[in-house]
Computed example of a mutant assay.
Amino acid sequence: MNRAIYILSRFGTDLVSLLSRAANAVLFNGSTAQTLSSRAYIDGRDSRFWRGMGKLINTLFFWQDDHIKAAWEAEVNRARYTLQRLEGLR
Results as ranks from 00 to 15, higher is better:
L19F: 15
N58W: 02
N77Q: 14
A23V: 05
L18Y: 07
S31T: 15
Y41K: 06
T13C: 13
G88R: 05
D43A: 13
G12D: 08
V26I: 15
D65S: 13
T59A: 14
A71I: 09
S20L: 06
S47I: 03
V26Q: 11
I57N: 05
A79H: 12
Q34I: 09
A25F: 15
L15I: 00
D65N: 10
S9Y: 00
A33P: 00
G12N: 02
R3H: 14
L89Y: 06
S17T: 04
R21N: 07
I68H: 04
R21Q: 10
S38E: 09
G52D: 07
G12L: 15
G44Y: 06
R78S: 11
A4G: 03
L60D: 12
T32D: 08
M53D: 11
L8K: 01
E87S: 09
A79F: 04
D14T: 12
W50I: 02
I5P: 03
D14K: 07
N24Q: 12
F62V: 00
L83N: 11
F61H: 10
L15C: 13
F62L: 07
V16M: 12
L15M: 14
N77T: 13
Y81G: 14
T82P: 05
A40G: 00
L8P: 04
R80N: 00
L89K: 04
N24R: 02
R3K: 06
L27P: 01
A25N: 14
R51A: 08
A71V: 01
T35S: 05
S37I: 07
R90G: 04
S17P: 07
L18I: 14
R10V: 10
R80V: 04
F11M: 15
S37D: 06
T82W: 10
D65G: 12
G12F: 05
D46E: 04
L89D: 04
L8F: 11
A25R: 09
Q64V: 05
R45I: 05
A74K: 01
Y81C: 07
L36V: 07
L83Q: 14
L8A: 05
M1G: 13
A22V: 08
I68Y: 04
G44W: 00
H67A: 10
F11G: 11
D65P: 05
T35L: 02
